[in-house]
Design a protein around this nucleic acid. Sequence first.
DNA 1: GCAGATTCGTTGTGCTTGCAACGTATACTG
DNA 2: CAGTATACGTTGCAAGCACAACGAATCTGC
Lengths: 142, 142
Amino acid sequence: MSFQLDQFLPYQLSVAAAEISRRFAARYAAEAGISIPEWRVLAHLGHSGAVSVRDITQRVHLDKSVVSRAASRLQEVGYVAKSDHGEDRRLIVLQLTPQGEDLMRRLSAVADKFQDELRALLGKDAAAFENGLARLLAGADG
Amino acid sequence: MSFQLDQFLPYQLSVAAAEISRRFAARYAAEAGISIPEWRVLAHLGHSGAVSVRDITQRVHLDKSVVSRAASRLQEVGYVAKSDHGEDRRLIVLQLTPQGEDLMRRLSAVADKFQDELRALLGKDAAAFENGLARLLAGADG
DNA sequence: GCAGATTCGTTGTGCTTGCAACGTATACTG
DNA sequence: CAGTATACGTTGCAAGCACAACGAATCTGC
């Protein structure tokens, strides 16, 4: 039979993503003791400033329950502050504490370094690869 | 702050892989009512012929417990047969039943079609993209 | 040839995820 | 300005996964 799983694009993509996520997660777990969802929430807050749980949910591709629990834990350990939204009291405003900002500075460096390593691994295909990834992401929305 | 999660390669890779897996899984779930691990086991058996659980575990990047349970379910529904290995009685020999082979022929067509769609989406970057993916997979082993 | 280490597949367990339900708050609609 | 619908964040719950432990079988070294 001719079908070969290990030459099948969705399979390769899935395995590569899992392995790379795992390796990167090990680095920021070592640096900060945080999980993947927590990393994503932190990273988004670092860039966006003060936003609601809903904003994060929409942008980081995580279920709102996952964001809610990640935010709670990040608050417990002091990286994130929760406060009320003045006008709409359904909303909760999340933002980094000074410690959170400090951590994100360190994690940014870790992330940039990791990305550089990946680009080096990709070599001359790096640009086309990222281009293709963007196309997949755009096309997968529909 | 400068770090942008949505331009971070591991994040993009993870989101793209998750979304594509989800969409492809919906297709073979509709065709055959199987899960992702079951699809992988079937696909590997279709290509490899009769092999042990251990062989599959090593090649499809799934934990042995996941392969074991997937194989049991596939046996229950009649796509896979288990038999003893003559020389080493620790091993279990898995292979597709005639119905399993039949199913894999249909699933191969579904998979090929899906992959063609992805390649179309990638356009001129397709070759470089797959090349890059191969490099990531090779580099991620170490 | 036998005691300990290793390998195979299965099964048990804690944890995370994804979905649904809920309470509260705001937005619509007549 | 009621009464209903919708949105927000939290919590409960079932399903799936990774990891560890296990019994059975084989290998290893003495």
